[in-house]
Design a binder for these strands. Structure first.
Length: 825
RNA sequence: GCCGAAGUGGCGGAAUUGGUAGACGCGCUGGACUCAAAAUCCAGUGGAGCUUAACACUCCGUGUCGGUUCGAGUCCGACCUUCGGUACCA
């Protein structure tokens, strides 16, 4: 018989809500635990498996912590601005605000059907004026600190749609809507100066309990490199420009220099004969993506400018080229090319027959050995004037020092990280709170005039300018300084701004006098456990760290990092690809909830595999979990009356009957395993342990018609088992807990079972006997049996004897409680 | 391309950190129950061979190739495939 999960789940969801059991008392900060899942993007219309995979197991972990006695705060909200809602609106004519509210209403119900312990009084919605008012406030804080500025930047532009395209809207270099080739157009954009925090963002990674891979990715993304800016003079014009290099020790090996095609000097220094070629080349490169340009397998291209540069240390003249593999925005937009010791330069020099001069000697080679490929590791300097014979490490310092002394070089630190471009020429976002007055210039909107409300009636169809520019009602305003007519900034903010501070808002989502209650934030932040997808490993997580640090420096926060501990759930793919509406491979969980219930479904998600690995979706095994929960349901209800009549009492190995002892051990082994695995997000193995326990227990009950197992002991085991199960199958556990006499909610009990550590040790182990590493026999011995004794057993073993007979024993390896390996010849 | 991961039975996966490969579950096969089916329960289940009423036994096996080691899914090197990110999807 199938257990009535529908009734049970509805009953408990209703009761939890009525009794307000998950309403968190934020004033109680003893054992506080802020468990946060990355909030939802309500883009499509429904929750999909990926959301459940994020939220279900995260809720299990939070419930587990609650049973351990923590005061757990687990909020939920919506990252509701963004491109998909706007695209949907362009396509269907449905206003993004309307589709978003409808989606949220639906999603909220789906979330409730999951049965998580969200405190709905703390919900946030980033597209609500009461929220984005404070997103604008965040912008202004950064603006006042000089961390927000305007600058020209290239954007993807479709000349036919007359609109800026997101990268995902560009398919093979063309607009996804009309197939027109996309061009790069320069527009004035707002930036956050995240690079000002590069060093701290890098350094504080050491403080975080984050997955190693995420820390590594952030570190590589920031991309710190220490080097020297070296000045080269242009022979023909006398202009000076700098190159950035981490290898000043190779300066004597420079045989040409390269300016990026976008380099501001390029036009100026190019000699008349070469102008046509160089500008045609720059035009060509403007269509290439950065990935293409920096590809290491693609054939590099470039052209000579006709000009020459003078090597500041050797006085040598070398040609100046421009090439696509040099990027304007990294370093100084120019490189000194040392083909002998840089792979890209080597390849380029070969292609264009530029000289290759060896200046670093690879250890173990001779200066006259031909160079087959670039040697990029350190070595000894040769062909380098007075530096000859110095090791790379010393040479780097020495050359840098000498250049600095004569003013031709400056030691610098360069980062790959770029400033955060946050303005969007779109409708569905938080307006940038800046006003332009003909007389007073660019001015921030005063805090007391926030929010700058996003008007509802706006034509958001793409026409070449920000949609808000066409709303006279929005654009025309008065100058906050002189009171004269002024115009608003018509761009909106990147949704990453909204999500860079939402974790602060959750503690006081309805507060309208401040972005957050500072006292509560002081007590509850930083987030203790942050759970979300690895696809956010760099951008969102880096932006949130940056905003936290900026608000700290503005005096609003007292901590340095927003997320103390981080866990990624893996990606659930479908047919090998990430689930997304655009790919049309989204799997809706609702039908599974309908058929099996939330407890089965969330448990299946946890049982599927390691939480941080995700995997390709398939529903084949779900029935196994459903059977498991059915068996638990039946096993408890068959003994309902008996169990209810049994008082709950602690047991020890001494008082249990001999027939119960192995179950006592199994129970405590299970408590240990489930506790450790749940804590560490190893849900799959915790569930397997619960199954093993249940299998062993029910066979024991069946074996002697239960005669060997007393009712008291049965109650003892089942009560604890239900507690272990509670975070995994909260509805069913509540139901069974009540059925056997529980009066309060199981989650009010805070009674995670204690583990009798001493009882978990096994009494006997199987030791294997190997001959030359191949297993030939096994025997059971008491735990801890000595090496000599094990060795003796192995040599006396009949099967082993067959394999060592007539051979010479070379060596014997004995590992206690594990194996004996006899090596013979 | 670059950065970061992952490859284990028919399938999802497990394996106290170098020491019994395949826990747990799905599926499949056989059996019990049933008029029958479903559900449930019991037993078996990596591949090949050999033997067989059965027990047992042998060889092979963790993406590919090579290495280190008494011993490698686990460590090292090279490669292949798949996934996430790559700064305007979030």
């Amino acid at each position: 018989m199938k257990y009535p999960f529908k009734e049970i789940e509805a009953k408990w969801q209703k009761r939890w809500e009525e009794e307000g059991i998950y309403k968190v008392d934020l004033s109680n900060t003893a054992c506080k635990l802020y468990a946060l899942v990355m909030f939802l993007y309500p883009s499509g219309d429904k929750l999909h498996i990926g959301h459940w995979y994020n939220y279900g197991p995260a809720d299990t972990w939070a419930r587990f912590k609650r049973l351990l006695g923590y005061n757990v705060f687990e909020p939920m909200g919506y990252d509701a601005f963004g491109l998909p809602a706007e695209n949907y609106a362009v396509k269907t004519g449905i206003h993004p605000g309307d589709s978003t509210s409808a989606n949220i209403a639906h999603i909220r119900e789906q979330l409730k059907s999951m049965g998580a312990m969200y405190d709905w009084d703390h919900e946030v919605n980033t597209s609500a004026p009461g929220y984005y008012r404070w997103t604008q406030w965040v912008f202004l804080q950064l603006y006042r600190m000089g961390l927000a500025y305007r600058s020209a930047a290239p954007v993807n532009w479709c000349p036919s749609c007359q609109t800026v395209l997101a990268n995902e809207q560009v398919v093979d270099g063309a607009c996804e809507r009309c197939d027109t080739p996309v061009i790069q157009k320069t527009m004035t954009q707002w930036f956050f100066r995240i690079t000002a925090y590069a060093e701290e963002l890098l350094r504080d990674l050491d403080k975080l309990d984050w997955p190693d891979k995420t820390v590594t990715m952030q570190r590589n993304w920031i991309g710190k490199s220490i080097g020297v800016d070296i000045k080269f003079r242009v022979k023909e014009t006398g202009d000076e420009f700098s190159v950035f290099t981490t290898r000043p020790d190779t300066l004597f090996g420079v045989t040409y220099v390269v300016l990026a095609p976008e380099h501001p000097f390029l036009r100026k220094i190019t000699t008349p004969d070469y102008r046509a070629v160089v500008s045609a080349y720059a035009e060509l490169v403007a269509h290439e993506t950065e990935i293409e340009r920096t590809s290491t397998i693609r054939v590099k291209t470039g052209v000579f400018t006709g000009a020459h540069a003078i090597n500041p240390i050797s006085g040598e003249e070398v040609p100046i080229w421009t090439a696509d593999y040099v990027l304007a925005r990294y370093g100084t937009g120019a490189v000194m090319a040392v083909p002998a010791h840089d792979e890209r330069d080597f390849e380029f020099a070969k292609k264009y027959s530029l000289p290759i001069r060896k200046v670093i000697l690879q250890p173990g080679t001779s200066p006259d050995d031909p160079l087959e490929a670039a040697y990029t590791d350190p070595g000894t300097m040769i062909n380098s004037g007075k530096y000859r014979g110095e090791k790379s490490k010393a040479g780097i310092e020495h050359v840098a020092e000498d250049l600095e002394r004569v003013g031709l070089g400056k030691r610098t630190v360069n980062y790959r990280l770029r400033d955060w471009l946050l303005s969007r020429q779109r409708y569905w976002g938080a307006p940038i709170p800046i006003v332009y007055c003909p007389g007073c210039g660019e001015l921030p909107v005063p805090d007391n005039q926030l929010p700058v409300v996003l008007p509802y009636n706006v034509d958001f169809k793409p026409t070449g300018e920000s949609p808000l520019a066409r709303s006279a009602e929005f654009v025309n305003t008065t100058c906050p300084k002189c009171g004269g007519p002024a115009r608003r900034d018509v761009d909106t903010m990147d949704t990453f701004v909204c999500s860079s501070w939402y974790f602060l808002r959750y503690v006081s989502p309805h507060l309208d006098s401040a972005p957050f209650d500072r006292e509560l934030v002081r007590k509850w932040l930083p987030v203790d456990k942050y759970i979300g997808g690895a696809e956010h490993a760099v951008m969102h997580l880096l932006y949130a760290r940056f905003v936290t640090k900026a608000l700290r420096d503005a005096g609003w926060l007292t901590f340095d990092e927003p997320f103390t501990s981080l866990v990624h759930q893996g990606t659930i793919t479908n047919n090998g690809a990430k689930m997304s509406k655009s790919r049309g491979n989204v799997v809706n969980p609702d039908s599974f909830i309908e058929r099996y219930g939330s407890d089965t479904f969330r448990m299946y998600l946890m049982f599927m595999g390691p939480y941080d690995e995700g995997g390709d979706w398939n529903d084949k095994g779900i029935v196994g979990l459903h059977r498991f929960l059915n068996r638990i349901h039946d096993m408890v209800l068959e003994r309902e009356d008996l169990l209810r009549s049994m008082p709950d009492r602690e047991m020890t190995p001494d008082i249990v009957k001999s027939g119960e002892r192995h179950l006592y051990r199994k129970l405590h082994q299970t408590i240990k395993k489930v506790t450790e695995d749940t804590e560490a997000f190893r849900f799959n193995t915790a569930v397997a342990a619960l199954m093993e326990m249940s299998n062993e227990f029910s066979s024991a009950l069946a074996a002697g018609d239960g005669a060997a197992i007393s009712p008291e002991f049965t109650a003892y085991v089942i009560r604890r088992f239900l507690l272990l199960l509670a975070p995994y199958a909260p509805h069913l556990s509540e139901e069974l807990h009540e059925a056997i006499g529980g009066e309060k909610s199981i989650f009010a009990s805070r009674g995670w079972p204690a583990c009798d550590e001493a009882a978990t040790a096994a009494e006997a182990v199987t030791v294997v006997a190997q001959v030359n590493g191949k297993i030939r026999s096994k025997f059971d011995v008491p735990v801890g049996e000595g090496e000599e004794s094990l060795k003796q057993r192995a040599f006396e073993d009949a099967k082993v004897k067959r394999w060592i007979e007539g051979k010479q024993v070379v060596r014997t390896i004995v590992v206690k409680n594990k194996l004996v390996n006899i090596v013979v010849k």
